[in-house]
Write a protein that binds this DNA or RNA. Structure first.
Length: 1021
RNA sequence: GCCCGGGUGGUGGAAUGGUAGACACUCAGGACUUAAAAUCCUGUGUCCAGCAAUGGACGUGCGGGUUCAAGUCCCGCCCCGGGUACCA
C-alpha cells in the first residue's frame, strides 16, 4: 500500500486497522458529490436565496498557496451553513483569466496565452477540488472565454450607447439625447461632460474659435454624420479622447491610476510616465456622488469604504475667475477656502496649464519654458520624491483680484497638478501651508504673506484652523470659516465671478490597453471615427498574431493581425486596443446567475431572484480597482433597466493575508585588496586577483549577527581568515601576474527555500545539491555544529522561496483538517504568519470524534439510548455557540466550541444517536467529508448537505444551581453554589451567611451587595 | 502628515461592562510498551510564602478617569502593521 509512507507509522506497526482514514473518506466523497451533483444550485423557487461569492482568482502559474483558500474556506462554511438553514444557495467559482502574466509569458516563449491559461486553470481546479468546496462548477465562468466576453463587449456597447442625464441623475440611452438635440439643440441639456469639452472638437465643427459648446436644433440638423458623432462622443459614458495617461514603456501599455503604486506599475514595478494618447475612457466621474452615497447602504469593512471615499475625494468649494491683467483671458481656480480670498497674494498654475505660454512675458519666457519642460520630463516617481522641495518660476504676468482689484503675480509651480481642479491655485499663504512655504521661499522675489486672521501669527506657519476669525477681509471680517464660506460664495455668484462647485479627485477611468490578452472592442473605424459593430456583424474575437508585441510603429499587438485573421472586419480598420483587466471582473457576479444564457448577460428573472451578492469574500487590495468599477457598472446596468439593484455586494468581508516565514543565509561578501596601502587600488585594479572563483561561504546566524557591524567582527574571525588566506594563495598560484589578497566586506542575505530548513536549521547536504552554484559552498557553523538561518515574516512569494502550498498538508492531514485549521488560526480578517505548529491539535480533534463513534476495532458504534440532561447540555451549549458565532462570522471560535463538545462527550463516553446526529450537522460546514461519512454511518441515504440545522433548546441549558463567584470590592475570593430560583435578596443573605465571608469582611459591615443573577456577587466593603 | 487596523502567557488566540488567559500549540512529569511512536492522565501567566494541600500579591502597551465591577467605556500618550498624500 503506497499510502503507508505518509501515514502515522503507529497504525501499521501495531497491525491495527486504520482509525480515521481521511484519504479514503475524502476521495470517496469527492467522487460522490461530483457524480450526484450534490452542489448543483437549486432552481428559482419560493425558498429564500443566499448568494455567497469569492473574489475570483487570476490563475497564475504558481498555483494556490495556503493563503488563497483562507477566504474560500470561510465562505464555503457560510454556504454550507445556509444550506442547512434551508436557503437556496448560489456559491460559484470561476477565473479572471485575461491578464498580464500569461501575456508576458507568451512574449517570452511564443506560447499562446490561451494555452498557458488553460494549463494554469487545470492546476487551480485540481487544487481547489482537493479542499472540498461546495462550488457549483456547472456555473464556472472564465473572462477570456468568448462566450463570456461576448457580454463584456455587449456591456461596453451599452455604456457607449448611454449618456448621463444630470437632471434625472441617471444614465439614459443616447437616443433621448439625440431627440433633445433635434428639438432644441443642447441648450437645456444637463449632461455629465468633461469641462471645456468643446475645445477639442472646435476646429472640426467650423463654429469658429470663440465657440463655447452651444448649438441649436438647426445647427444639429445641418451637421454631417461625422460632426454629430464628434459631438455625441463628448456625451457618451465611454468615449474616445486624447487624455493624459499613465504610460508604462516597459509593459508597452497605459495603466489606470489604481494599477500604479508609488509611481511605478503595480505589476513588475516599472516606471510610468505621463503621456497624451487617444484612449477609450469610462465616465465614472458622472457617478462620483452616487458611488459615495451608495457606501452608506452597504455593509463593508469601514476601511474599504474610507479608501473609496478618499479615492473619490469629494470637496466642496467654489470656482472663481481671476482676470489676467492686459489680456482678454482669465484664470479659473477651484478653492475649498473661498472665505480666505482676501488673503490671496499670488497665483500658481500647473506648468502644463494652457494659459502659461500665452501670458508669459518675453523676459520670463526662457525661464518658464525651461521649468515647464523639466517638469514635463519627470516621471510620477520623481515628482513624488521631491515633495519637500519647493520650486516654481514667475511668469511675469499679473492677475486682478476680483474683489480688491489688486494686481497679483502669476507663478507656475510643480506642486499644482494639471489634472486636479482647474490646474490653478489661488495662493493664500496665511491659510495654506503649501502656499505659505512657496511664499516664504520666494519672498526675495516679492511674494508676501498678508495676514487675514485676527489673533493669529502667520510668520511661523499658516493658520489652518477653521475656527480662526477673519480680518482684513472687507465684508468677511469677524466671521469664521462656516459663515464666511456661505457669504463669500453668495457674493461671488452675485457678482458673476464664479460659482459654488463640488470637485472630485477621481478621474475618468482609462479603458484601453495596448495588449493582446484582453477583450477586443466591438468597434471599427471609418473616416477616423469609431463605430460600434452591429448585432448582425457577429461577435469579434481575438485574432491570431505572429508575435505578442507592439508593431514597429508602436501600434498595439492586435494591429499585427492580418486582415483575414479577424473574424469580423469592417470599415477602414478594427479597434486595436483591448479592454483592461477590470472589464470582465466588473460584472461576473451577474453571469453566475445565468451562466449559459445566449440571449442576454443574464435574464431578468434570474437577476431578480438572486439579486445582490449577500456575502462577498476577498482581499482588501482591490479597494480602488475592482470594487469601485463593479459598483460603477452595476449602477449603469441598473440605470438602463437591466437589473433591479444598484449595488453589487451587500456585505463584504476581507480576509487577511497569510504571511510566509522565509529563511535566508548569510553569505560572506569577498573583495580583493592590495597587500600594502602604498598604491591606490584604482591604479592597480586590473592586477588584483579575481574573487569570482571563490566558492560561496555562508556564516551561521549567531556569528553573522552578533554585532551591528558584522564586517568588523568577521575580519577578526580566524576561520574566515583562514578560508580567505587559503584561497588567496590558491588564486595567486593560479594567476602569477596578479597580486593582492581576499578580504571580507560584509554579509549578504540570500533567500533559501524553506523546504531545505527545519526550525531554522539548514539541511546543508540538500542545500548543496539545490543549485549548482552551491555545490562547492562552505559553511561556518555555530557551536552546536549546525547552520542557523535568519528568518523573516513576509508576504508569500516565489522569489522568497517561502510559499506553502495546501497540497502537502492535504496529503498529510486531509482537507477537513486543513479547513478547520485555517479557521482555527484566528479571526479571518487578520493577517497572520503561516505556521503549521498547531495543525496536529485540530487533526487530533477529528480523530477523537472518530473514536467517539467507533470502537477499538473501528466498528461504528452508536446507541439509541436517551441522552442524559448533562449530555444534552453539552450538545445544546455547542448548538447555541456555533450558531451564534456563524451568524456573527466568527469562524475561529466555532472550532474551539466543537472541540469542547467532543472533549466533554468523550469524558461522558456518550455515543448516543440523539447527540451525535446533531453534532455531525454542526461539524459538516467545517469538515464536510468526515461529516458525510458519519452521516452515512448513522444510516442516512441522502447527503448531510441539506440536513436541517439543529434547533437550539434553551431548556437543556437550564440549571437548578449556579456556582456563584463571590467577590469583595471586585476581587473574586470564593465560590458558592446557590439555587438559580433564589431571589437577589436570598442570594445576598446566603453569601453573608457563608463561613468565608467574615474573613474578607474583616469585621466591617458591607456597604452594598450587588447580585447579578447567574453571573456574580460583588460585596462592597 | 492624515486615515484605518492592532497591542492579552513561551506561541496562535478566547472573553456581549460581570470568575482574564477558553480552545489549541509548546514544554515538563506520569501511565501503557522490550523500545519508540501514537494514545491517555497531570501540570504549565509572573512573583512571594510553604514539605504539602494551599494561601497571598501582581497582571491585558503606558498614564489618568467613569463604575459596585474595565482587556472591554471615556480622555491623553507610546509602539507595531496597513493604506494614502504637494488634492488647492
Amino acid at each position: 500500500m503506497r499510502v503507508a509512507a505518509i501515514l502515522p507509522a503507529c497504525i501499521f506497526a501495531t497491525g491495527e486497522t486504520m482509525e480515521y482514514d481521511f484519504k479514503r473518506i475524502e476521495q470517496a466523497w469527492r467522487g460522490r458529490w461530483a457524480g450526484q451533483g450534490t452542489y448543483t444550485t437549486g432552481e428559482i423557487s419560493d425558498k429564500p436565496k443566499y448568494y455567497v461569492l469569492d473574489m475570483f482568482p487570476y490563475p497564475s502559474g504558481a498555483g494556490l498557496h495556503v493563503g488563497h483558500p483562507l477566504g474560500y474556506i470561510a465562505s464555503d462554511i457560510i454556504a454550507r451553513y445556509m444550506r442547512h438553514r434551508g436557503y437556496n444557495v448560489l456559491h460559484p467559482m470561476g477565473y479572471d483569466s485575461f491578464g498580464l502574466p500569461a501575456e508576458q509569458y507568451a512574449i517570452q516563449t511564443g506560447q499562446h496565452p490561451a494555452v498557458t491559461t488553460e494549463k494554469n486553470i487545470a492546476r487551480y481546479r485540481e487544487q481547489l477540488d482537493k479542499l472540498g468546496f461546495s462550488y457549483d462548477w456547472s456555473r464556472e465562468v472564465r473572462t477570456s472565454d468568448p462566450a463570456y466576453y461576448r457580454w463584456t463587449q455587449w456591456i461596453f456597447s451599452l455604456i457607449y450607447r448611454s449618456w448621463y442625464n444630470l437632471e434625472a441623475d441617471r444614465a439614459e440611452p443616447v437616443e433621448t439625447l439625440v431627440a433633445k438635440f433635434a428639438e432644441n439643440g443642447n441648450y437645456n441639456v444637463h449632461a455629465a461632460c468633461e469641462d471645456g469639452w468643446w475645445k477639442e472638437i472646435r476646429d472640426q465643427l467650423f463654429f469658429g474659435p470663440d465657440w463655447e459648446g452651444d448649438f441649436s436644433a438647426t445647427d444639429w440638423l445641418s451637421m454631417t454624420k461625422k460632426q454629430r458623432e464628434l459631438i455625441l462622443m463628448q456625451y457618451r459614458l465611454t468615449y474616445l479622447a486624447d487624455s493624459v495617461v499613465n504610460w508604462c514603456p516597459a509593459l508597452g501599455t497605459v495603466l489606470a491610476n489604481d494599477e500604479i503604486k508609488d509611481g511605478v506599475s503595480e505589476r513588475g514595478g516599472h516606471p510610468v510616465v505621463q503621456k497624451k494618447m487617444r484612449q477609450w475612457s469610462m465616465r465614472i466621474t458622472a457617478y462620483a456622488q452616487r458611488l459615495l452615497d451608495g457606501l452608506d447602504s452597504i455593509d463593508w469593512p469601514e476601511n474599504i469604504k474610507e479608501v473609496q471615499r478618499n479615492w473619490i475625494g469629494r470637496s466642496e468649494g467654489a470656482l472663481v475667475r481671476f482676470p489676467v491683467a492686459g489680456y482678454a483671458a482669465h484664470i479659473e481656480v477651484f478653492t475649498t477656502r473661498p472665505d480666505t480670498i482676501f488673503g490671496v497674494s499670488f497665483m500658481t498654475l500647473a506648468p502644463e496649464h494652457p494659459l502659461v505660454p500665452r501670458i508669459t512675458t518675453p523676459e520670463r519666457r526662457e525661464a518658464v519654458e525651461t521649468y515647464a519642460k523639466a517638469a514635463g520630463l519627470k516621471t510620477e516617481r520623481d515628482r513624488q520624491s521631491e515633495v519637500k522641495h519647493v520650486t516654481g518660476v514667475f511668469t511675469g504676468a499679473y492677475a486682478v483680484h476680483p474683489f480688491t482689484g489688486e494686481k497679483i503675480p502669476v507663478w507656475i509651480g510643480e506642486y499644482v497638478l494639471a489634472g486636479y481642479g482647474t490646474g490653478a491655485v489661488m495662493a493664500v499663504p496665511a491659510g495654506d501651508q503649501r502656499d505659505w512655504e512657496f511664499a516664504r521661499k520666494f519672498a526675495s522675489e516679492g511674494l508676501t504673506i498678508p495676514n487675514i486672521f485676527a489673533h493669529a501669527d502667520t510668520s511661523a506657519g499658516a493658520e489652518t484652523s477653521k475656527e480662526a476669525v477673519l480680518c482684513n477681509s472687507d465684508f468677511l471680517n469677524g466671521l469664521s470659516y462656516r459663515a464666511a464660506f456661505e457669504k463669500v460664495i453668495a457674493e461671488i455668484e452675485q457678482r458673476d465671478i464664479g460659482m459654488r462647485k463640488v470637485n472630485y479627485r477621481m478621474r475618468d477611468a482609462v479603458f484601453s490597453r495596448q495588449r493582446y490578452w484582453g477583450e477586443p472592442f466591438p468597434v471599427y473605424y471609418e473616416d477616423g471615427m469609431p463605430y460600434l459593430l452591429d448585432e448582425q456583424d457577429g461577435q469579434v474575437t481575438l485574432p491570431e498574431v505572429d508575435k505578442y508585441l507592439p508593431t514597429d510603429e508602436g501600434e498595439p499587438p492586435l494591429a499585427r493581425a492580418r486582415r483575414e485573421a479577424w473574424n469580423v472586419w469592417k470599415g477602414e480598420r478594427m479597434e486595436y486596443n483591448t479592454m483592461p483587466g477590470w472589464a470582465g471582473s466588473s460584472w461576473y457576479f451577474l453571469r453566475y446567475m445565468d451562466p449559459h444564457n445566449q440571449q442576454a448577460f443574464a435574464s431578468p428573472e434570474k437577476t431578480d431572484y438572486w439579486k445582490q451578492v449577500d456575502l462577498y469574500m476577498g482581499g482588501a487590495e482591490h479597494a480602488t480597482g475592482h470594487l469601485l468599477y463593479a459598483r460603477f457598472w452595476t449602477k449603469i446596468l441598473h440605470d438602463r433597466g437591466y437589473i433591479a439593484f444598484d449595488e453589487p455586494f451587500k456585505k463584504m468581508i476581507n480576509q487577511g493575508m497569510i504571511l510566509g516565514r522565509s529563511n535566508y543565509l548569510y553569505k560572506l561578501r569577498i573583495s580583493s585588496e592590495l597587500w600594502s596601502a602604498g598604491n591606490s587600488a584604482a591604479e592597480n585594479n586590473l592586477d588584483l586577483i579575481p574573487q569570482g572563483e571563490v566558492p560561496p561561504f555562508f556564516i551561521s546566524k549567531e556569528i553573522a549577527e552578533t554585532e551591528n557591524q558584522p564586517f568588523n567582527n568577521l575580519a577578526d574571525n580566524a576561520e574566515i581568515n583562514a578560508y580567505l588566506n587559503e584561497w588567496t594563495l590558491k588564486l595567486l598560484a593560479k594567476y602569477p601576474g596578479k597580486k593582492g589578497k581576499l578580504v571580507p566586506s560584509g554579509v549578504q542575505r540570500l533567500p533559501v527555500d524553506i523546504s531545505l530548513v527545519d526550525s531554522d536549521v539548514l539541511d546543508i547536504e540538500r542545500f548543496m545539491s539545490w543549485r549548482e552554484e552551491f555545490a562547492e559552498a562552505n559553511f561556518l557553523l555555530n557551536e552546536h555544529k549546525v547552520y542557523i538561518c535568519g528568518s523573516e515574516i513576509e508576504k508569500m512569494s516565489k522569489s522568497k522561496y517561502n510559499v506553502q502550498t495546501p497540497d502537502e498538508l492535504v496529503e498529510k492531514f486531509g482537507a477537513d483538517t486543513l479547513r478547520m485549521y485555517e479557521m482555527f488560526l484566528g479571526p479571518v480578517e487578520q493577517s497572520k504568519p503561516w505556521d503549521t505548529k498547531g495543525i496536529n491539535g485540530v487533526h487530533n480533534f477529528l480523530r477523537k470524534l472518530w473514536r467517539l463513534c467507533h470502537d477499538t476495532d473501528n466498528r461504528f458504534v452508536v446507541n439509541e439510548e436517551t441522552p442524559t440532561a448533562a449530555e444534552l447540555k453539552i450538545l445544546h451549549t455547542a448548538i447555541k455557540k456555533v450558531t451564534e458565532d456563524l451568524e456573527r462570522y466568527n469562524w475561529n471560535t466555532v472550532v474551539s466550541t466543537l472541540m469542547i463538545c467532543v472533549n466533554e462527550l468523550t469524558e461522558n463516553k456518550c455515543n448516543k444517536r440523539r447527540v451525535l446526529e446533531p453534532l455531525v450537522v454542526l461539524l459538516s460546514p467545517y469538515a464536510p467529508h468526515l461529516a458525510e461519512e458519519l452521516w452515512q454511518s448513522l444510516g442516512h441515504m441522502a447527503s448531510v448537505t441539506n440536513a436541517p440545522w439543529p434547533e437550539f433548546d434553551p431548556a437543556c441549558l437550564e440549571e437548578d444551581s449556579f456556582d456563584y463567584p463571590v467577590s469583595f470590592n471586585g476581587k473574586t475570593r470564593f465560590f458558592i453554589p446557590l439555587g438559580t430560583a433564589l431571589s437577589q435578596d436570598e442570594v445576598s443573605r446566603a453569601v453573608l451567611a457563608h463561613e468565608q465571608t467574615a474573613r474578607y469582611l474583616e469585621g466591617k459591615t458591607p456597604k452594598k451587595i450587588i447580585v447579578v443573577p447567574r453571573r456574580i456577587v460583588n460585596v462592597v466593603v
